[in-house]
Protein backbone atom coordinates (compact mmCIF):
# COMPACT_ATOMS: atom_id res chain seq x y z
CA UNK A 1 0.00 0.00 0.00
CA UNK A 2 1.28 3.42 -0.93
CA UNK A 3 0.09 6.98 -1.42
CA UNK A 4 0.99 8.81 -4.61
CA UNK A 5 1.21 12.57 -4.25
CA UNK A 6 -0.46 14.26 -7.22
CA UNK A 7 -0.47 17.77 -5.72
CA UNK A 8 1.38 18.43 -2.47
CA UNK A 9 -0.66 21.36 -1.12
CA UNK A 10 1.15 24.37 0.32
CA UNK A 11 3.10 22.76 3.16
CA UNK A 12 2.14 19.14 3.79
CA UNK A 13 4.47 17.17 6.05
CA UNK A 14 4.60 13.78 7.74
CA UNK A 15 4.10 14.24 11.50
CA UNK A 16 3.58 12.10 14.57
CA UNK A 17 3.83 13.07 18.24
CA UNK A 18 7.40 14.26 17.76
CA UNK A 19 10.87 13.48 19.10
CA UNK A 20 11.19 14.91 22.59
CA UNK A 21 14.56 14.53 24.30
CA UNK A 22 16.94 16.35 21.96
CA UNK A 23 15.96 19.96 22.52
CA UNK A 24 19.08 20.55 24.63
CA UNK A 25 21.05 19.71 21.48
CA UNK A 26 19.06 22.22 19.45
CA UNK A 27 16.74 19.64 17.87
CA UNK A 28 13.12 20.53 18.58
CA UNK A 29 10.45 17.93 19.25
CA UNK A 30 8.56 18.75 16.00
CA UNK A 31 5.42 16.63 15.57
CA UNK A 32 1.84 17.67 14.85
CA UNK A 33 1.04 21.27 15.73
CA UNK A 34 -2.35 19.96 16.92
CA UNK A 35 -1.71 16.76 18.91
CA UNK A 36 -5.38 16.24 19.70
CA UNK A 37 -6.41 16.24 16.04
CA UNK A 38 -3.56 13.85 15.17
CA UNK A 39 -4.57 11.42 17.92
CA UNK A 40 -8.22 11.59 16.86
CA UNK A 41 -7.38 10.91 13.21
CA UNK A 42 -5.30 7.88 14.17
CA UNK A 43 -7.94 6.46 16.53
CA UNK A 44 -10.60 6.80 13.82
CA UNK A 45 -8.66 4.52 11.46
CA UNK A 46 -7.60 2.03 14.13
CA UNK A 47 -3.97 3.17 14.31
CA UNK A 48 -1.88 3.65 17.42
CA UNK A 49 -2.49 7.22 18.65
CA UNK A 50 0.99 8.41 17.78
CA UNK A 51 1.30 6.91 14.29
CA UNK A 52 2.52 9.15 11.49
CA UNK A 53 -0.08 11.10 9.50
CA UNK A 54 -0.01 13.99 7.04
CA UNK A 55 -0.33 17.53 8.35
CA UNK A 56 -1.74 19.77 5.59
CA UNK A 57 -1.39 23.49 6.27
CA UNK A 58 -3.94 25.94 4.77
CA UNK A 59 -4.38 23.81 1.63
CA UNK A 60 -5.05 20.12 1.15
CA UNK A 61 -2.99 17.80 -1.04
CA UNK A 62 -4.27 15.57 -3.83
CA UNK A 63 -3.44 11.92 -3.14
CA UNK A 64 -4.00 8.64 -4.96
CA UNK A 65 -4.24 5.43 -2.97
CA UNK A 66 -2.64 2.43 -4.66
CA UNK A 67 -4.80 -0.01 -2.65
CA UNK A 68 -8.09 0.09 -0.78
CA UNK A 69 -7.61 2.33 2.24
CA UNK A 70 -9.48 3.72 5.23
CA UNK A 71 -8.79 7.39 5.86
CA UNK A 72 -9.83 10.04 8.40
CA UNK A 73 -9.39 13.82 8.29
CA UNK A 74 -9.52 15.88 11.47
CA UNK A 75 -8.50 19.35 12.62
CA UNK A 76 -9.19 22.15 10.17
CA UNK A 77 -12.44 22.30 8.22
CA UNK A 78 -11.16 21.48 4.77
CA UNK A 79 -13.77 19.27 3.11
CA UNK A 80 -12.23 16.05 1.78
CA UNK A 81 -13.62 14.46 -1.36
CA UNK A 82 -13.05 11.09 -3.02
CA UNK A 83 -13.34 11.32 -6.80
CA UNK A 84 -15.40 14.48 -6.27
CA UNK A 85 -17.76 12.97 -3.67
CA UNK A 86 -17.65 14.98 -0.43
CA UNK A 87 -16.67 13.05 2.71
CA UNK A 88 -17.29 14.07 6.32
CA UNK A 89 -14.46 15.27 8.56
CA UNK A 90 -13.75 13.71 12.00
CA UNK A 91 -15.08 10.47 10.45
CA UNK A 92 -13.36 7.48 8.86
CA UNK A 93 -14.17 6.78 5.21
CA UNK A 94 -13.04 4.36 2.52
CA UNK A 95 -10.91 5.22 -0.49
CA UNK A 96 -10.68 2.49 -3.11
CA UNK A 97 -7.53 1.47 -4.95
CA UNK A 98 -6.75 4.04 -7.64
CA UNK A 99 -9.14 6.67 -6.28
CA UNK A 100 -8.05 10.24 -5.61
CA UNK A 101 -8.52 12.03 -2.31
CA UNK A 102 -8.66 15.83 -2.71
CA UNK A 103 -9.71 18.79 -0.55
CA UNK A 104 -11.90 21.84 -0.89
CA UNK A 105 -10.84 25.30 0.34
CA UNK A 106 -9.97 25.78 3.97
CA UNK A 107 -13.02 27.05 5.85
CA UNK A 108 -12.03 27.09 9.51
CA UNK A 109 -8.88 26.21 11.38
CA UNK A 110 -5.51 25.97 9.69
CA UNK A 111 -4.18 22.40 9.69
CA UNK A 112 -5.91 19.22 8.61
CA UNK A 113 -4.60 15.82 9.73
CA UNK A 114 -4.95 12.98 7.25
CA UNK A 115 -4.55 9.54 8.83
CA UNK A 116 -4.48 6.36 6.76
CA UNK A 117 -5.05 2.96 8.37
CA UNK A 118 -1.56 1.46 8.84
CA UNK A 119 0.13 4.84 9.31
CA UNK A 120 2.60 6.63 7.04
CA UNK A 121 5.75 4.55 6.98
CA UNK A 122 8.82 6.74 6.63
CA UNK A 123 12.07 5.93 8.46
CA UNK A 124 12.17 6.62 12.19
CA UNK A 125 14.80 9.26 12.95
CA UNK A 126 15.77 9.83 16.61
CA UNK A 127 12.61 8.04 17.69
CA UNK A 128 10.10 9.80 15.44
CA UNK A 129 8.78 10.01 11.89
CA UNK A 130 8.06 13.73 12.23
CA UNK A 131 9.41 16.16 9.66
CA UNK A 132 11.69 18.93 10.92
CA UNK A 133 12.07 20.81 7.65
CA UNK A 134 14.44 23.49 8.96
CA UNK A 135 16.88 20.76 9.97
CA UNK A 136 16.07 18.51 6.97
CA UNK A 137 15.33 15.73 9.45
CA UNK A 138 12.70 12.98 9.56
CA UNK A 139 9.54 12.68 7.48
CA UNK A 140 10.03 12.15 3.77
CA UNK A 141 13.64 13.21 3.10
CA UNK A 142 13.32 15.85 5.81
CA UNK A 143 11.03 18.08 3.73
CA UNK A 144 7.45 18.93 2.81
CA UNK A 145 5.75 16.74 0.19
CA UNK A 146 6.23 17.41 -3.52
CA UNK A 147 4.27 16.25 -6.54
CA UNK A 148 5.19 12.68 -7.62
CA UNK A 149 6.36 11.65 -4.13
CA UNK A 150 5.31 8.17 -3.06
CA UNK A 151 4.64 7.46 0.61
CA UNK A 152 4.65 3.91 1.97
CA UNK A 153 1.82 2.94 4.31
CA UNK A 154 2.27 0.38 7.10
CA UNK A 155 0.23 -2.78 7.49
CA UNK A 156 -2.99 -2.51 9.45
CA UNK A 157 -3.20 -4.56 12.61
CA UNK A 158 -6.88 -5.40 12.17
CA UNK A 159 -9.73 -4.73 9.75
CA UNK A 160 -10.82 -1.11 10.03
CA UNK A 161 -14.37 0.13 9.58
CA UNK A 162 -15.34 3.22 7.68
CA UNK A 163 -18.02 5.44 9.24
CA UNK A 164 -16.55 5.76 12.74
CA UNK A 165 -17.02 9.29 13.95
CA UNK A 166 -15.83 11.61 16.71
CA UNK A 167 -18.88 12.91 18.64
CA UNK A 168 -19.63 16.57 17.93
CA UNK A 169 -18.85 17.64 21.51
CA UNK A 170 -15.33 16.21 21.22
CA UNK A 171 -14.43 18.05 18.01
CA UNK A 172 -12.54 21.17 18.92
CA UNK A 173 -13.98 24.24 17.23
CA UNK A 174 -11.77 27.26 16.62
CA UNK A 175 -13.38 30.32 18.25
CA UNK A 176 -13.76 33.57 16.26
CA UNK A 177 -11.33 35.25 18.65
CA UNK A 178 -8.97 32.73 20.20
CA UNK A 179 -7.91 33.25 23.81
CA UNK A 180 -4.49 31.88 24.60
CA UNK A 181 -3.77 31.42 28.27
CA UNK A 182 -0.31 32.56 29.31
CA UNK A 183 1.71 32.09 32.46
CA UNK A 184 3.50 35.45 32.76
CA UNK A 185 7.10 35.24 33.79
CA UNK A 186 10.63 34.40 32.71
CA UNK A 187 11.63 37.97 31.73
CA UNK A 188 8.38 39.94 32.05
CA UNK A 189 10.19 42.26 34.50
CA UNK A 190 11.90 43.78 31.45
CA UNK A 191 8.76 45.66 30.36
CA UNK A 192 6.86 48.34 32.24
CA UNK A 193 3.70 47.48 34.16
CA UNK A 194 1.67 49.47 31.64
CA UNK A 195 3.23 47.55 28.74
CA UNK A 196 2.50 44.22 30.42
CA UNK A 197 -1.13 45.24 30.96
CA UNK A 198 -1.33 46.45 27.36
CA UNK A 199 -0.05 43.12 26.08
CA UNK A 200 -2.85 41.27 27.87
CA UNK A 201 -5.61 43.74 27.00
CA UNK A 202 -5.08 44.24 23.28
CA UNK A 203 -6.29 42.17 20.36
CA UNK A 204 -3.43 40.79 18.29
CA UNK A 205 -3.63 39.25 14.84
CA UNK A 206 -1.77 36.24 13.46
CA UNK A 207 0.93 37.47 11.07
CA UNK A 208 1.26 35.78 7.68
CA UNK A 209 4.80 34.67 8.67
CA UNK A 210 3.44 32.41 11.44
CA UNK A 211 4.68 28.85 10.92
CA UNK A 212 5.70 25.67 12.72
CA UNK A 213 8.76 27.34 14.24
CA UNK A 214 7.04 30.39 15.63
CA UNK A 215 3.60 31.94 15.55
CA UNK A 216 4.03 35.65 15.05
CA UNK A 217 1.42 38.30 15.93
CA UNK A 218 0.87 41.93 14.97
CA UNK A 219 -1.51 44.73 15.69
CA UNK A 220 -0.84 45.60 19.32
CA UNK A 221 1.05 48.65 20.51
CA UNK A 222 4.84 48.32 20.93
CA UNK A 223 5.88 47.44 24.47
CA UNK A 224 7.93 49.82 26.57
CA UNK A 225 10.95 48.48 28.40
CA UNK A 226 12.22 49.28 31.86
CA UNK A 227 15.43 51.25 31.25
CA UNK A 228 18.64 49.47 32.23
CA UNK A 229 22.29 49.28 31.33
CA UNK A 230 22.43 46.13 29.19
CA UNK A 231 24.43 43.41 30.98
CA UNK A 232 27.61 42.00 29.48
CA UNK A 233 26.72 39.50 26.75
CA UNK A 234 23.31 40.96 25.94
CA UNK A 235 22.70 42.80 22.68
CA UNK A 236 22.07 46.53 22.63
CA UNK A 237 18.34 46.37 21.90
CA UNK A 238 16.27 46.66 25.10
CA UNK A 239 14.48 43.39 24.14
CA UNK A 240 17.83 41.57 24.25
CA UNK A 241 18.94 39.48 27.19
CA UNK A 242 22.02 37.35 27.83
CA UNK A 243 21.43 34.22 25.72
CA UNK A 244 19.24 31.66 27.43
CA UNK A 245 17.10 28.59 26.75
CA UNK A 246 13.71 29.11 25.11
CA UNK A 247 10.87 26.90 26.38
CA UNK A 248 8.19 25.65 23.95
CA UNK A 249 5.28 28.05 24.08
CA UNK A 250 7.44 30.93 25.31
CA UNK A 251 6.55 34.33 23.89
CA UNK A 252 9.44 36.49 22.77
CA UNK A 253 8.87 40.03 21.51
CA UNK A 254 11.89 41.19 19.48
CA UNK A 255 12.13 44.97 19.64
CA UNK A 256 8.96 44.96 21.75
CA UNK A 257 6.72 45.01 18.68
CA UNK A 258 5.67 41.57 17.37
CA UNK A 259 5.17 38.69 19.81
CA UNK A 260 6.32 35.25 18.61
CA UNK A 261 5.18 32.02 20.29
CA UNK A 262 7.72 29.27 19.79
CA UNK A 263 5.98 26.11 18.63
CA UNK A 264 6.87 22.50 17.72
CA UNK A 265 9.86 23.35 15.48
CA UNK A 266 11.15 25.95 17.96
CA UNK A 267 14.69 27.24 18.16
CA UNK A 268 16.06 26.15 21.53
CA UNK A 269 17.77 29.30 22.67
CA UNK A 270 18.74 32.87 21.97
CA UNK A 271 18.85 36.39 23.23
CA UNK A 272 15.30 37.76 23.26
CA UNK A 273 13.41 38.37 26.48
CA UNK A 274 10.23 36.32 26.99
CA UNK A 275 7.11 37.81 28.52
CA UNK A 276 5.59 34.46 29.49
CA UNK A 277 4.67 31.01 28.22
CA UNK A 278 1.48 29.71 26.64
CA UNK A 279 0.08 26.90 28.79
CA UNK A 280 0.44 23.39 27.35
CA UNK A 281 -3.34 22.90 27.07
CA UNK A 282 -3.57 25.78 24.55
CA UNK A 283 -0.65 24.83 22.29
CA UNK A 284 -2.81 22.72 19.95
CA UNK A 285 -5.20 25.61 19.33
CA UNK A 286 -2.35 27.84 18.08
CA UNK A 287 -1.77 25.37 15.25
CA UNK A 288 -5.33 25.98 14.06
CA UNK A 289 -5.04 29.77 13.81
CA UNK A 290 -5.18 31.28 10.34
CA UNK A 291 -3.29 34.36 9.21
CA UNK A 292 -5.04 37.58 10.34
CA UNK A 293 -7.08 35.69 12.98
CA UNK A 294 -7.68 37.83 16.09
CA UNK A 295 -6.12 36.55 19.32
CA UNK A 296 -6.08 37.68 22.92
CA UNK A 297 -3.56 36.66 25.53
CA UNK A 298 -5.02 35.90 28.95
CA UNK A 299 -2.78 35.84 32.03
CA UNK A 300 -3.31 32.80 34.26
CA UNK A 301 -1.51 31.29 37.25
CA UNK A 302 0.16 27.87 37.52
CA UNK A 303 -2.86 26.34 39.26
CA UNK A 304 -5.14 27.31 36.36
CA UNK A 305 -2.57 26.00 33.86
CA UNK A 306 -2.41 22.63 35.60
CA UNK A 307 -6.21 22.43 35.86
CA UNK A 308 -6.44 23.15 32.12
CA UNK A 309 -3.95 20.37 31.46
CA UNK A 310 -6.05 17.94 33.53
CA UNK A 311 -9.14 19.01 31.56
CA UNK A 312 -7.31 18.41 28.26
CA UNK A 313 -6.30 14.94 29.49
CA UNK A 314 -9.90 14.18 30.48
CA UNK A 315 -11.08 15.26 27.05
CA UNK A 316 -8.53 12.95 25.47
CA UNK A 317 -9.71 10.09 27.71
CA UNK A 318 -13.30 10.78 26.62
CA UNK A 319 -12.21 10.68 22.97
CA UNK A 320 -10.48 7.32 23.50
CA UNK A 321 -13.54 5.92 25.25
CA UNK A 322 -15.86 7.12 22.47
CA UNK A 323 -13.80 5.37 19.77
CA UNK A 324 -13.22 2.05 21.50
Amino acid sequence: MAIEVIKPGLATTVQDLGRPGYYHLGIPESGAMDHYALRAANLLVGNAEGDAVLEATFQGPELRMTENAVVAVTGAEMQPGVEGVAQPIWTSFAVKAGQVLAFDFLKRGARAYVAVAGGIDVPVVLGSRSTYALGALGGLEGRALRAADVLAVGKTAAAVKAGRSVPEALRRAVPATAELRVLPGLYDFRVTKAALEGFFSETWRVATEADRIGYRFRGGRPLEFVPRKQPFGAGSDPSNIVDTCYPYGSIQIPGGSEPIILHRDAVSGGGYFMIGTVISADMDLIGQLQPHAPVRFVAVDMETALAARREANQRMAALRASLQ
Binding site: Q59, F105, T208, P291, H292
Partner: peptide, 8 residues
Protein backbone atom coordinates in the same frame (compact mmCIF):
# COMPACT_ATOMS: atom_id res chain seq x y z
CA UNK B 1 -12.78 32.99 -8.62
CA UNK B 2 -11.87 32.25 -5.00
CA UNK B 3 -8.51 32.60 -3.26
CA UNK B 4 -6.84 29.20 -2.90
CA UNK B 5 -4.98 30.16 0.29
CA UNK B 6 -5.19 32.54 3.22
CA UNK B 7 -2.53 35.24 3.40
CA UNK B 8 -1.75 38.60 1.87
Amino acid sequence: IAAPLPGT
